[in-house]
């Protein structure tokens, strides 16, 4: 074989290899199977709630500290706004989080972004998020820019795609329907209503499950192992605010302003512990970087971080998850600022 012919053969074989990988990747996209059901079902339930609300609404978004950390019924009672908690996991890309609000928000609504500190500084997409999104939100992947698509693919472990393809194969053989088929949306909504009405007869898992949501999307179960560790809430680093959050929040704010949606920021609830020192120069500098970034977009934080430092008894299972009492306390501390912000620029009056 001549060198020229060899190089042509090599190039053809490389293209065939890349095509095979692309086919296997596409085949695994949107192939829901356990253990991805949990987050997928939570999202479906939250979308159902989001579709159901009418009137001016406060859309809560952030990581799981937002999912666990708000008392939305209290917000509704105190502000008169509907409140829907769309948050579920800190690893989700911020663009994805904001897209969740963009799906439902309408003129006159409020986006309350309670992002975790790490979300301002992170530079990479977690493999967990890439895997989950591939399984239950493939449309998000297709909506990404080319550079973000490349980053997404780099974050996706190949073994996860392999597993997805095995499940796809199981779909062809019928094994999937016998063992792994997820719940359909109709049944999910029925179960959700049964749970709210107290008539659900099945077993309710303790953790990360759509049956642990209240009617606003807040997490309500609290019988889990208590967390009593230490955490600095990602304030001791020196990383600048990442380009990703800059771009995503800028775009979101511009979209919100164009659509008459007010954007407000909240600090996350933090447990008083040995590692948390808001007086430390590094922590002060980190908070300063976040605030300056918010100022650059003309965004307002509701209160100061110190106001959301709470007793460790109000937290359970992780440093970022509050108990129901913790969520209520955090919301109580937030409400004066929220009400003040809404009355100052109340777009409905």
């Amino acid at each position: 074989m001549t060198a020229k012919r060899y190089l042509i053969t090599l190039l053809t074989a490389v293209l065939a290899g890349i095509a095979t990988i692309a086919i296997l990747f596409c085949a695994h996209l949107g192939m829901p199977w356990w253990p991805h059901h949990l987050i997928r079902e939570v999202r479906m339930a939250k979308h159902y709630m989001a579709r159901s609300v009418e009137g001016p609404t406060i859309w809560i978004q952030g990581g799981s500290s937002a999912w666990f950390g708000f008392d939305s019924p209290q917000i509704k009672t105190e502000t008169g706004y509907e409140a829907v908690n769309l948050a579920f996991n800190v690893n989700m890309p911020t663009e994805f989080c904001f897209d969740e609000i963009r799906r439902f928000a309408k003129p006159g609504d409020v986006a309350l972004l309670a992002l975790e500190n790490s979300m301002y500084f992170r530079e990479s997409l977690s493999s967990y998020a890439a895997d989950e999104i591939s399984i239950w939100a493939p449309d998000y992947f297709w909506s990404l820019s080319l550079s973000r698509k490349a980053r997404f693919l780099k974050s996706l472990p190949w073994r996860k795609a392999l597993a997805g393809n095995l499940v796809r194969l199981g779909q062809l053989t019928g094994a999937y329907n016998r063992a792994l088929r997820p719940i359909d949306e109709e049944s999910l909504i029925k179960n959700l209503h049964d749970q709210w009405n107290g008539s659900y007869s099945g077993e309710i898992p303790v953790y990360y499950n759509y049956l642990t949501l209240n009617q606003h999307g807040d997490f309500v179960q609290t019988d889990h192992t208590l967390w009593r560790g230490t955490h600095d809430y990602n304030l001791m680093g020196t990383a600048p605010v990442s380009d990703e959050i800059r771009q995503d929040l800028e775009e979101f704010v511009s979209w919100a302003r164009a659509n008459n949606v007010r954007v407000l920021l909240s600090w996350l609830p933090m447990a008083r512990n040995a590692k948390l020192d808001l007086e430390n120069p590094k922590a002060i500098a980190s908070m300063d970087r976040i605030v300056k970034f918010a100022d650059s977009l003309d965004l307002e934080f509701l209160g100061d971080p110190e106001e959301y430092v709470m007793d460790i008894e109000l937290f359970y299972d992780t440093s970022h998850h509050t108990t129901a009492a913790g969520a209520s306390e955090r919301t109580r501390r937030l409400l004066p600022h929220l009400k003040q912000a809404l009355s100052i620029t109340d777009i409905h009056e």
Partner: peptide, 22 residues
């Protein structure tokens, strides 16, 4: 130069691409 060498090289590239995530 042989087809075997071309296929092996292509397979290596494909596997590197597939593994790039981890």
């Amino acid at each position: 130069f042989s087809i075997k060498a071309a296929v092996l090289s292509a397979a290596i590239i494909a596997l590197i691409i597939a593994q790039s995530g981890s």
